[in-house]
Amino acid sequence: MRQKKKNSKFLKIITLLLSMLAVVPFSYAESQEFSIGVYYPGIGFKYNIAPKIGLEARVQSEDKITVLGARGYYYLGDKSNVTLFTGAGLHTITFKGDSSEGNGTALEGFIGGEYFIMDSLSLQMDMGMAIISLLDTDNSITESGGEFTYGIGMNWYFGGGMKK
């Protein structure tokens, strides 16, 4: 019962966040700084607040694991259709395993690149390391440590493409 309440609250937060982010494209579409991305396994909304800095809200879900967080991008430079970046992210986690159930956080650092197929569409790949901390709330048992990750996805830029 307690977990149901927790999930319900969490879903409300996600819905609110997504609703807020959903209106952003229309507001910033003309600015060409806003993009929406589809990643495995989730979606992200990115806004470049400066020529070399972007902020992204991400929601990911897989196998009773839900991750909600933000990523910061620092663009290292670009050549032709490729833009390299590095960055860091902080995420909150809720999960339910075979025996465990609870929440946690993930702090990640990554490096990757975007390859623009079109002015408004890019393929994104990145890899990095995540420091993950989980807590089984019923038994107060924790599990922490680093994990190497890689990600793939696609970005769609509103307003004709990212400013370079």
Partner: peptide, 15 residues
């Protein structure tokens, strides 16, 4: 691991 959730899955399994 593929995606952050893939990495978290490994940790959930250990937990």
């Amino acid at each position: 691991a593929l995606g952050l959730t893939g990495a978290i899955k490994n940790k959930v399994k250990a937990l």
